[in-house]
């Protein structure tokens, strides 16, 4: 009847290495974090209630500031060249979504010209970045 004795032995999970595991994961996640490497232009986004989230991986940013300067991939481009540039970008990524990070005081004409360029390049999925507006809150 020696069976009982052996089962009584206390079982435990060793936790002393938990900190090591945690640090390992920590280092892994710190290394793999990708920070956006695009500085863009300074813009104040408009506010909208119907805002939704966009897929970050597919998004390609177009910054347009108050003065109507257009920045794509940290390059200042003229509105006439947007079509060409986007054509190249959409062949690299056919599911690309173009996100407009446009200042709320930008004249609409500039945005319209950029959109014409996008239509030319067949980059039809667009996204107007906004700040979230809480319903019922005045702005």
């Amino acid at each position: 009847m020696n069976f009982n004795r052996s089962t009584k032995k206390e079982t435990y999970i060793p936790t002393s290495s938990m900190g090591d595991i945690a640090f390992l994961l920590l280092v892994f996640f710190m290394v793999t974090v990708v920070f956006t490497d695009e500085s863009g232009l300074v813009v104040t986004l408009p506010r909208a209630e119907a805002s939704e989230e966009g897929l970050r991986d597919l998004i390609s940013n177009v910054y347009i500031n108050e003065a109507g300067m257009i920045s794509i991939d940290d390059m200042i481009v003229r509105s006439e060249d947007v079509g060409q540039l986007m054509m190249r970008k959409i062949t690299e990524n056919p599911f690309m979504i173009v996100a407009f990070k446009t200042d709320k005081f930008t004249p609409y004409g500039v945005v319209s010209e950029v959109m014409e360029g996008l239509k030319e390049a067949n980059a039809v999925k667009v996204f107007f970045n906004t700040d979230m507006e809480m319903p019922g809150l005045a702005f």
Binding site: S51, A99, K119, F128, D131
Partner: peptide
């Protein structure tokens, strides 16, 4: 931290080349 998305806005489809 990387989950915090700053991509908030209104999505739209343009008509494309017509």
């Amino acid at each position: 931290m990387p989950m915090k998305s700053d991509e908030i806005g209104i999505s739209l489809m343009l008509p494309g080349k017509t």
